[in-house]
């Protein structure tokens, strides 16, 4: 897979699991102040990126196992660790358990969420972002359009991405009961 295809794979198959992974990690890492959720996610992504993507059959399971492994290394490194954390790590059978429950956010929820996040961007930042993503302007055109330097456009875009990235770390409201809305049928006599 080339770089682009790999990034698409990451966007499509890995990112959707992140909110759940973060929530799970936040619960596990309470006793470990030397290790934060961001860092475990970053380390897990680095390992996933360098792994053989073709061989990963179940991305979610792979991601959780990797993250659990990273936490385990950290636990071994620390001197004092609450016993129940270690037990918890070993006993956990996240893969089977979580696989069934997992549902990807519906398109509308995802759109609605992004919408909300975009509303909170500072005006200039949001304008640059919308010109880039909605209108497909080049950085130069955005600069001309907004009457600012290209390097400033770049700063606005980077800020937009950073803010979206921070906002996306929060678990969305719909993720908890993300089970498919089932239609119930019954017969009439």
């Amino acid at each position: 897979m080339d770089h682009g295809a790999r990034l698409r794979w990451f966007a499509r198959d890995v990112l959707p699991h992140e909110p759940d992974l973060r929530k799970w990690l936040a619960g596990r890492l309470r006793g470990l102040d030397s290790c934060d959720v961001d860092e475990v996610v970053q380390e897990a992504y680095a390992r996933l990126w360098t792994a053989d993507a073709e061989a990963i059959r179940n991305t979610r399971a792979y991601l959780y196992v990797t993250a659990r492994h990273i936490v385990g290394e950290q636990v071994r490194r620390s001197r004092i660790v609450a016993i129940d954390l270690v037990a918890d790590l070993d006993a956990l059978n996240i893969v089977d358990e979580e696989m069934n429950v997992h549902r990807r956010l519906s398109g509308q929820e995802e759109l609605a969420r992004l919408h909300e996040i975009l509303q909170t961007l500072p005006p200039k930042c949001r304008e640059a972002f919308e010109l880039k993503k909605f209108q497909d302007f080049s950085q130069r055109r955005i600069a001309e359009h907004m009457g600012i330097a290209e390097s400033t456009v770049e700063k606005h875009l980077a800020k937009a991405l950073r803010l979206v990235s921070e906002a996306m770390k929060q678990a969305p409201a719909g993720a908890e009961n993300g089970k498919r809305r089932e239609r119930k049928f019954w017969k009439w006599g």
């Binding site: 990034l7 990451f10 966007a11 499509r12 380390e43 992504y45 680095a46 992004l114 993503k133 991405l161």
Partner: peptide, 21 residues
């Protein structure tokens, strides 16, 4: 290695925003 992980995440997010946007 965390830098790589964060960089991959940011790139993938930027790409994903394309689709949603």
């Amino acid at each position: 290695s965390r830098h790589l992980g964060a960089y991959v995440r940011a790139q993938a997010l930027w790409l994903d925003l394309d689709r949603v946007a």
